[in-house]
Design a protein around this nucleic acid. Structure first.
Lengths: 236, 236, 236, 236
DNA sequence: AATGAATGAGGCTTCATTCAT
DNA sequence: GATGAATGAAGCCTCATTCAT
């Protein structure tokens, strides 16, 4: 399992679950999702806590039972986005071995999702601009696959950090393109192909791996909280 | 000459010179530079117009003779950054023909500059996040070189738009790395090498072009206005 | 009872009583009274919301929990003035039947009050200039009495709307005269006499009705809120 | 000639006319007319001197060569309105003797004009609310006619001041009605009829005088300045 | 005189935060 | 815990006024 998943919620480890705690977790989750909806609409810097309260349909004072600064909100949203994506990747990649394929799938899944989950992608683009934590978490996702690719002889990059950041930059740029409506439907494939080439994969192979059919994600056991409120993850 | 340079100032065409016009232009420029210094310190969203007035040493109300929204400030800064960079590139690239070399030089010059002009780079990263105009201007810079590379047989990308955006994304990501102190001194070379490979250049050639010595920029006739006030371009 | 009284407060119908509602209503009322004190001193256009806050001894931001424009303040004050006056008239007129007497009493009571409640009158003059709502409410007061006078054969005006507006105009002009110190103590009587004549009452009868003794207003059950704060209705 | 006309312009008596002086007078006049246009649109309190400069197409600093406070602007506009109206009345009333007819004509002419010169009327309503000088000038207009009516035995009011103010109040209220679109075309006649009755004229006579045909105003020698700018007096 | 850039006081408005209920 | 009225600092914006040209 992906290491990022090990800190799914920086509060959940505190105490065993009681009824009050479940309610607390639910409220917290609904605040996070409300924040995400706001981020999708207006810059991260413009999230007003009062507005967050309104969006989450709690009173403004209530926010302070959960977050004490805007940065905490931002970072909680980042953690949640990462957690969510991590779960998705894990469920999709199971059993896929070749590193180029794994790398291409990860990038393409994000881009494809941006086409359908527009607001989610808009929020990601904004959160990643401000939240260093999310950027480094995103990088850690990839490290294992890049190293595996090197070991398998598929990749030949000369600097792992540069390679990782290149992947993240390209993906983020692609998400932005999709959000802003500049991207054609095959944008994910094209980006993946070029990225593989940047990593040292030959043009032919890069094209091959970048155009394999995407695997279906395994149905998740349950993506908690979000669903219980009867509201789809990102956009109502 | 680079086409972007043809619109160096979105006000300059308005009217012939009246008496106050030189003063007006000088004030405007000092506002732009003050804004750039602020962007280097704090997010674009946090620029307070009052603070801009203070930084530029004009009074509160004067701002509104020049800009009526924060977006206008942002975009004026973007225009100026592009104009400035455009001038630099033009003076450096003269006489250099091979597209891979030109592409590598452009990317490396930006990254190198980020090491020495830290605040300038910080401002760029932030401005580009918010200012669509600046992103597309940046893209137009490259288009000619990419097309030339294709014609010369050096490049073999399959989608020009994707290639252009990849370049911009990677460069922007690199600037951020430098600003945040994560980048080693050879980051520009590594990035250029991988980017050339992404464009279809072979590994060996990519390495070659990415590591040629950078040409000295020709001394500019005069970088106007900014200098006259006796204040260094970005941060004192 | 006068129809205007049926909408004593354009917020009161919103919701049943919650905990904070009494406090909310009290604050709102104190804002209205503070506004009236300010209107008495300086033009309606010069009411600064900050000053209103100071006068009502609440903080700057509190205003915006109640009013979002100056017009809203103005109209709330207008509504309150009408409501207040309506209560007074109702309690005074009870049992008085002849329309000319009723009309004369209404006009004279307003003018007399202006002599003693200088600031109240000054506020009225200003509010009515700006608040169309108050002017039409004032007109509706009279309509029944005018129609009754026609039916009783006391009046013989040919256009009800013109007659109503004439009454309001004359009264307003009289209030202004009193406020500006131009009016003799019998101004109300003189005005009432001329107004009755304008409505078709003979000179002798007009003089008679315009000089009957004014009835004492019945003591009101309670003029709400204002009094509770221990502050005289208009100006301390 | 009407006494008000004797102070047509509180500057004109200063010095004999030279060329510079004519220019000065012209600029001053254009400022007054610009102010009137603004008053017609937005409350007197909202006239911003900068806006006045823009409306008159002079630079903001120029205003201060003519007026030093907003009150001065207001009063200059008032003086001009009175002067203008005075000229009109004089040219119309010549040769008309019966006081009731003169009073009715004055009131009706104002109301009729409000129907066609909407903005002029709107400005009047607003200027008179703020400018005591204009109110008293308006009153002085009437005094002679009222006294004449008393002497002729046509009127029988008991208090001249009250009668004068009643006339002004009713007229002003009527102008407002016209401006706000509540008045029928015969409003002037109805108002004049009721006003005459208030002054002691019998119903039949009042109706007679209130419905005589209005005399054509004699063409004025020249209504100065306004015309020269090629702009109609009130509304462009 | 006219211009218009610059000024800065003053009013407007938002919003993070507190706190009594 | 939740509520929401109140707070007040902080930023926005206007506009009367000045002054060098």
């Amino acid at each position: 399992m992906n290491p990022v998943l090990q800190t799914p919620d920086n509060e959940s480890a505190e105490q065993p679950l009681t009824r009050g705690h479940k309610k607390r977790a639910r409220t917290r989750q609904s605040l996070i999702e409300a924040a995400l909806r706001i981020y999708a609409r207006k810059g991260v810097g413009e999230l007003a806590l009062n507005e967050l309260a309104a969006e989450a349909e709690v009173s403004n004072g209530t926010i302070y039972n959960y977050f004490t600064t805007r940065e905490e909100v931002l970072s909680a949203v980042g953690v949640w986005l990462i957690e969510q994506f991590s779960r998705l990747i894990d469920s999709t990649m199971t059993g896929i071995v070749p590193a180029p394929q794994r790398v291409a799938i990860a990038m393409r899944m994000l881009i494809e999702r941006a086409f359908t989950e527009h607001d989610w992608a808009a929020a990601i683009v904004r959160v990643m601009h401000f939240d260093e934590g999310m950027r480094s978490a995103a990088i850690e996702f990839l490290r294992a696959d890049l190293q595996a690719g090197l070991a398998q002889g598929s990749f030949s990059y000369s600097d792992e950090q540069v390679a990782l950041e290149l992947f993240v930059s390209v993906t983020l740029g692609g998400l932005r393109s999709v959000v802003e409506g500049r991207a054609a439907p095959d944008r994910g494939n094209k980006m993946a192909e070029m990225t593989l080439m940047a990593l040292g994969v030959s043009g032919a192979e890069a094209r091959h791996f970048a155009n394999l059919p995407l695997p279906e994600p395994m149905p998740l056991a349950e993506a908690p909280a979000a669903r219980r409120r009867g509201r789809p993850a990102i956009k109502p």
